[in-house]
Design a protein around this nucleic acid. Structure first.
Lengths: 337, 337
DNA sequence: ATGAAAGCGCTAACAT
DNA sequence: ATGTTAGCGCTTTCAT
């Protein structure tokens, strides 16, 4: 077994209370005994038992993070930020891959409850009534990343409507008039609806025609979805010169499909994405896209959660993070400007 | 506060011992009391406290995973596998981002020790003597992923020498004779040296010339490293028709540089990568590469660790995972075959 | 079949 | 300045 506080106390000829005081920097001991105890700790290789501490303090110094898919590039960048903030605040992070399946989410929430985590970061999935009830039961702070809900939960995200609006406007300003969109799901209140709405409103604001034909909807936001969407869009909108995709993966999928169809990007078809994943600058031509500060968002969410746990603020304010359009090579001026 | 076992006992008019037995499925109670207790649990919404359990069982049902960079695409795919295996085995996973800095690694190891994790997955970094000592102190099983060490620690990885050898041979079989390599670091005993050695030996085995000029070395394995390497290689090896990169990111970096230099891939330059990240099939042309079964490796490592923890096997065997060459569009026959 | 009681390793009153 | 002691919520003998 590992040495316990008792062993240290015996070794240093003091009581366990004194050892505890010294470990925790509480007042009440002489320099002399402090030295003795520190030597004993050193000699025994003593490490305080966080489990025992947790039992008594009702604090585990651990937070849980729930992602729909851990290996998604989006999640992994957010995770890095969260991990950073958490560890700076003295917390460890338990990751849970909900795999976008409701059943697993509940199971994980229960597990985190049993493990008595001090707080939760919830990412990229809708907060159902069921989840919300569990949050309340747990009585721990929760912060949402890239998600909203009609419940009063602090969130960190970008304004998706605005992002989509500006992305579309960027295309319009380049002279494009026939613009299509590869969208997400109409049931997705985060990356789905707002981005499609932003697209539509931008078109309307510039008095460009819009109809359902201008958008393909998809259940996922993956490469394959984008690849499959391009032909459909082309059929509905043969004279399309530019394209807004609701995710980088889809944008790159569309680019791949364009290559195969012999359509030159950006000469014949301009493409703008959304997310600014690392791959955006690695593909060819490099993808112009709406940048979400993913790592920052994770970091910010982590910071907020830590503050909430430490009780420094009672009500956390939500945060809209700034997005920006990063210009690379996948968009050009329209030839029929 | 959350209800405790005491509350349940009181509510059901039994002793806490009985409640404990029922929760844990131990023998020693009647169907009648079982029902009473279960009703009480339901009524109170009782959840056993994993911390208290951990204190007594000396088992936290938690493992720690250390990665050099959480958001690296490599890590995130491995992590998904680990998370999967862990949760199937009834364990949670704490992620630690060591950011390839030795100091942080030690700090995290200590933290995991205090948190009394039941086991550790260690990825992609050399096991120094210092780390090894801590592992021993902790007295928990450790399994390495994509790492080796001269210590007796079970590992899960592919045979990098073989992978590089076959990748090079693949190029040779396509008729290429002037082949360059974008390599890693000579100080990296995993992804660095073995892959360069495999390259060299394959050339030699086919009686093709080899010199230091055929390889560029890099400290990292990123896009930028590959991008910067191509011009250097071209200078040393002007007639080069094919290229082996020690990572997909570097391969794609080289591809990007080639595009900029007006070199057509694969017509004028064939490129093969290593890893088979998700981006490999997203770039254009899609990258031919050596596939490491990243998720599987994580899963396997997780499974082994769980078995080790549960004491099902005393000495775990290490595992070489199968690799394969996935053919896509970035390699073509040499014209001067 | 059930209960009482002794800890697990620690913190926090409360003494001295 | 230091020690004693009572728990934290649970599991596990040992009684009954």
């Amino acid at each position: 077994m590992n040495p316990t506080i008792k062993d240290v106390a015996r070794h240093a000829n003091v009581s366990i209370a004194t050892v505890s005081r010294i470990i925790n920097g509480l007042p009440g001991y002489s320099e002399d005994t402090k030295k003795k105890v520190e030597e004993a700790i050193e000699a025994l290789g003593y490490q305080p038992n966080a489990i025992a501490r947790g039992l008594i303090n009702k604090r585990t110094q651990t937070i849980g993070v729930l992602f729909p898919e851990v290996s998604g590039m989006l999640s992994s960048e957010v995770l890095e930020g969260v991990e950073n903030a958490a560890h700076d605040g003295g917390f460890s992070v338990i990751v849970c891959n909900t795999a976008s399946s409701g059943k697993r989410t509940v199971k994980y929430l229960r597990l985190l409850q049993e493990k008595r985590v001090d707080g939760i970061i919830f990412a990229s999935e809708d907060v159902t009534e069921e989840y919300y009830k569990i949050f309340q039961e747990m009585k721990v702070p929760v912060v949402l990343v890239s998600t909203a809900s009609h419940y009063e939960l602090p969130f960190v995200r970008v304004n998706d409507f605005e992002g989509a609006f500006q992305a579309t406007e960027y295309l319009i300003n380049k002279g494009h008039k026939k613009i299509g969109m590869i969208g997400g799901s109409v049931n997705d209140p985060i990356a789905g609806v707002p981005r499609m709405k932003g697209f539509e409103e931008a078109l309307l604001a510039h008095e460009l025609p819009f109809s359902a034909n201008h958008i393909t909807t998809n259940e996922g936001y993956r490469f394959q979805n984008g690849k499959e969407s391009l032909p459909i869009l082309l059929e509905h909108l043969p004279e399309m010169t530019a394209l807004f995709a609701a995710s980088d993966e889809m944008a790159i999928g569309a680019m791949s499909a364009a290559h195969q169809l012999g359509i030159k990007v950006p000469e014949e078809l301009s493409i703008i994405g959304y997310d600014n994943l690392k791959i955006a600058e690695m593909c060819y031509p490099a993808l112009t896209t709406v940048s979400q500060p993913l790592k920052d968002m994770g970091q910010t969410a982590g910071d907020i959660l830590v503050k909430l746990i430490k009780g420094k603020e009672k009500e956390a304010e939500s945060r809209y993070m700034p997005f920006s359009i990063v210009e690379r090579q996948s968009v050009s001026e329209s030839r029929d400007k």
